[in-house]
Simulated scan of single mutants.
Amino acid sequence: MMRYPLLALLLLSAPLAAQEASVEPGAVEACFDATARGEGTPDCVGNAASACSSAQEQPDTTFAISQCMMAETNDWDSLLNREYQKTRDAFSDQPGLADALLTAQRAWIAFRDADCTLAYDRYGDGSMRVISAADCRMRHTAQRTFQLRDLQGF
């Protein structure tokens, strides 16, 4: 059963707390820029969400933590889209490679969604499921952003 998209819809449509969750502008980009090619996924992934959560009126709530993870994920997703386009452009001179990248990206999206649904389902009806799914999506998105960047220039 595919509950994760429903979860995202519920979280996004839930009444916002007194303070809207957002990450520090440029924090995710700084993490990305500070990570050398081929280094993998750095420890700075999740730092923007942690700082965001700490700044909330009720920082240790499922709502605050998951909203901040989703805010960081949105920034990673913007970078992912940029890096995907740059990688596609880098592959444009090699016949079929851009199409292979599209196929791989679609498969990655399916994998990410399935893996994060599993992360959600593992916790049954517990509130930790929301945090687990949000963390899964954030980390997968960041990791894929670095992978796409690292494909460029080869």
Results as ranks from 00 to 15, higher is better:
residue 119 A to T: 01
residue 13 S to E: 13
residue 43 D to K: 10
residue 149 R to N: 06
residue 19 Q to C: 09
residue 54 S to G: 08
residue 9 L to Q: 14
residue 126 G to W: 06
residue 136 C to T: 05
residue 131 I to F: 06
residue 78 S to M: 11
residue 12 L to G: 14
residue 149 R to G: 03
residue 99 D to C: 00
residue 69 M to H: 07
residue 121 D to G: 07
residue 25 P to E: 10
residue 108 W to N: 10
residue 8 A to L: 13
residue 148 L to A: 10
residue 54 S to V: 00
residue 105 Q to G: 03
residue 89 D to I: 11
residue 55 A to F: 01
residue 35 T to I: 00
residue 5 P to F: 01
residue 63 F to S: 13
residue 4 Y to F: 11
residue 70 M to D: 10
residue 109 I to M: 15
residue 150 D to L: 01
residue 133 A to S: 13
residue 18 A to I: 04
residue 15 P to N: 10
residue 114 A to P: 06
residue 85 Q to V: 08
residue 65 I to E: 04
residue 14 A to R: 13
residue 115 D to L: 00
residue 67 Q to A: 12
residue 42 P to A: 03
residue 29 E to Q: 14
residue 47 N to K: 09
residue 148 L to K: 10
residue 26 G to D: 10
residue 100 A to P: 01
residue 148 L to E: 09
residue 32 F to W: 10
residue 52 C to I: 01
residue 70 M to G: 06
residue 154 F to Y: 13
residue 85 Q to C: 05
residue 34 A to G: 12
residue 102 L to M: 09
residue 102 L to R: 14
residue 41 T to I: 02
residue 68 C to P: 04
residue 127 S to G: 15
residue 121 D to H: 02
residue 22 S to P: 00
residue 98 A to Q: 13
residue 87 T to G: 03
residue 32 F to H: 10
residue 125 D to N: 15
residue 110 A to D: 15
residue 73 T to E: 08
residue 31 C to I: 03
residue 77 D to T: 08
residue 142 A to W: 04
residue 139 R to M: 07
residue 93 D to R: 14
residue 88 R to D: 07
residue 74 N to A: 14
residue 72 E to D: 09
residue 9 L to N: 10
residue 5 P to E: 06
residue 74 N to Q: 12
residue 30 A to K: 11
residue 104 A to Y: 08
residue 104 A to M: 11
residue 10 L to E: 13
residue 116 C to S: 08
residue 138 M to P: 00
residue 112 R to E: 11
residue 109 I to K: 14
residue 80 L to K: 11
residue 61 T to E: 05
residue 92 S to Y: 07
residue 18 A to E: 13
residue 49 A to K: 01
residue 107 A to T: 12
residue 63 F to W: 09
residue 148 L to G: 10
residue 82 R to S: 09
residue 37 R to T: 05
residue 132 S to K: 08
residue 79 L to C: 04
residue 131 I to N: 08
residue 58 Q to C: 04
residue 36 A to P: 05
residue 146 F to T: 02
residue 99 D to M: 02
residue 9 L to K: 15
residue 23 V to R: 03
residue 134 A to N: 10
residue 85 Q to A: 15
residue 150 D to I: 00
residue 88 R to K: 15
residue 6 L to A: 10
residue 107 A to H: 11
residue 37 R to K: 12
residue 33 D to I: 06
residue 95 P to A: 14
residue 140 H to A: 03
residue 111 F to I: 04
residue 38 G to L: 03
residue 23 V to S: 04
residue 154 F to H: 15
residue 136 C to P: 02
residue 29 E to V: 04
residue 147 Q to L: 06
residue 1 M to I: 06
residue 119 A to C: 07
residue 113 D to N: 13
residue 61 T to I: 03
residue 53 S to R: 10
residue 152 Q to N: 08
residue 94 Q to P: 01
residue 114 A to D: 15
residue 120 Y to G: 01
residue 5 P to W: 02
residue 39 E to M: 03
residue 29 E to C: 01
residue 102 L to E: 15
residue 123 Y to K: 12
residue 61 T to V: 03
